Simulated scan of single mutants.
Amino acid sequence: MHQEIVINLPIEPHEVPKLRESVGWDGRYSDYPLLFERCNFWAGLRDEHNELIAFGYISGMGLQHGYMEDIIIHPEYQRKGIGEALVKSLLQEADRAGLEIVTLTYDKKHQLFYTRSGFVPSAGGVWRKG
């Protein structure tokens, strides 16, 4: 696959929920297209059949700090370097946009992936509505 990750790739509202479900996550259909209006930018990749196979975004105030979320690669395309390319593209766009800090949360099993992608593991916390 020689296609490039595209920043702010045009995406139909149903495509990200479908991709989320392909990896076993809740589709969160009500989040789209609202998410595209509220995040700083997103990135995506399509396969040769024009199907969305990769997606991720950075949100925040757009001043100094951003939050990376929903790094999703369709299961058929995982472990082929697409995730690393997606994260790299998002971080390059963050740099271009003037963000100095990008944070994210991840499952411990993904720590090596994010460390290789330039993130430094750190302590933090998560609040969830009861």
Rank of each mutant, 00 (worst) to 15 (best):
Y106W: 11
G60K: 02
G66R: 00
L104N: 02
I72A: 02
Y77L: 02
L112V: 12
I5E: 06
E69M: 08
S89R: 13
I58V: 12
G83H: 03
I101S: 12
D70A: 14
Y77F: 04
W42E: 04
V6T: 12
R20T: 07
R128P: 03
A54W: 03
W127C: 14
R38T: 15
E93C: 08
L19R: 02
A94R: 01
G27M: 07
H14N: 12
W25S: 02
K18W: 07
K108R: 11
H65I: 14
E48R: 06
S30V: 12
G56T: 00
Q111S: 09
P75N: 04
K88A: 07
P75I: 10
V126G: 11
E93P: 07
Y114T: 02
N50E: 12
S89V: 07
D95V: 12
H49T: 08
S30C: 12
A123I: 05
V23Q: 04
D107G: 08
R96F: 15
V126K: 13
E100H: 10
L35K: 07
N40S: 14
S89N: 13
V87M: 14
I58H: 05
S30P: 05
I71T: 02
H74V: 05
F119C: 08
R79K: 15
E21H: 11
C39T: 11
G124R: 01
C39D: 10
G44N: 04
D95K: 13
S30Q: 14
P17W: 00
E100I: 04
H65N: 12
L99N: 05
G130Y: 10
V23P: 02
T105C: 10
M68D: 00
G118R: 13
L63F: 09
I82Q: 02
V126Y: 10
F41A: 10
R38I: 15
H74D: 13
L90I: 08
H49P: 01
